[in-house]
């Protein structure tokens, strides 16, 4: 199989409440998978399972054919809706942090030449997400959109095999959200990323994704609604060649993008 990530018969249960049942998925390298579904359908649970933050009750997850350890690791990057940057570090140091952890196990700090090299790499990454002028700002001094850009840069510097996005643009204004869509599309293409994004915005799911998964319950027991879990009820592959080619010109915040976003906001 060419699948980068495989979920085999995944079940997630909390007590006698079944959240996910029998989820089987293969995600190919380079795909951008959007996950949508009603509230409480286990979108975030699925993401947490892939992330390793939560252990599935049953089933196995394979990354490159190897079973995943039930713990978060640098092979899977994540951007949450909020709280995914460190408030006590400037943008640059937030980004360097990932490099420092790998290279300095004891102090988690780099000095001298190693530090300069890491800083240069982090600076380049921050420029790539459009934060080149905000290197020394603390997150509290940034807007919501800038904080999400920082969270993305922070995750990408580790070159994760898979980038997981949990409603990353949900708390942003429509205009900013359009900018972020352009950004994530560009990064996805430039860095050949594999992305899984949970969203409640259906339009966002279809604009960005190469594949849209809908999670919902297949069966419903009116007397015990919690006894059936959700699974992927729709799995739609999309073609995404045209926007990818056309967006090169109108990359950062084209006015067209803004209008569309506001019109559908």
């Amino acid at each position: 199989m060419s699948a980068l990530l495989s979920l085999r018969n995944i079940w997630v249960e909390y007590g006698d409440k079944i959240v996910l049942e029998k989820v089987d998925l293969d995600i190919e390298a380079g795909s951008f998978v959007s996950i949508i579904g009603p509230s409480g359908a286990g979108k975030s649970s699925l993401l947490r399972v892939v992330l390793g933050q939560e252990v599935p009750t049953r089933g196995t997850i394979l990354l490159d054919g190897e079973p995943l350890t039930p713990e978060c690791g640098p092979d899977r990057g994540v951007v949450f809706q909020r709280y995914s940057v460190f408030p006590h570090l400037s943008a640059l140091r937030n980004t360097i942090f990932g490099l420092e952890c790998a290279k300095a196990p004891l102090t988690a700090r780099l000095f001298g030449g190693a530090r300069r090299a890491a800083a240069a790499e982090a600076e380049e990454m921050l420029r790539a997400v459009g934060l080149g002028d905000a290197l020394h700002l603390y997150p509290a001094q940034m807007s919501g959109g800038m904080q999400q850009r920082l969270a993305i840069a922070q995750a990408l510097i580790k070159r994760p095999r898979i980038l997981l996005l949990d409603e990353p643009f949900g708390a942003l204004d429509p205009g900013i959200r359009a900018d972020m869509h352009a950004l994530i599309t560009r990064l996805w293409r430039d860095y050949a990323l594999t992305i899984i994004m949970v969203t409640h915005d259906i339009r966002e799911a279809f604009t960005l994704g190469t594949r849209v998964l809908t999670l919902d319950k297949r069966r419903h027991d009116p007397h015990a609604p919690h006894r059936f879990g959700a699974t992927a009820v729709y799995d739609l592959p999309l073609r995404r060649t045209e926007p990818a080619a056309g967006e090169d010109v109108a990359d950062d915040a084209s006015p067209q993008d803004d209008e569309e976003a506001i019109g559908n906001g």
């Binding site: 990932g98 196990p105 922070q154 995750a155």
Partner: peptide, 9 residues
């Protein structure tokens, strides 16, 4: 969780 995905022990 984020710190762990950045490789922190």
């Amino acid at each position: 969780v984020k710190a762990q995905t950045l490789g922190a022990s």
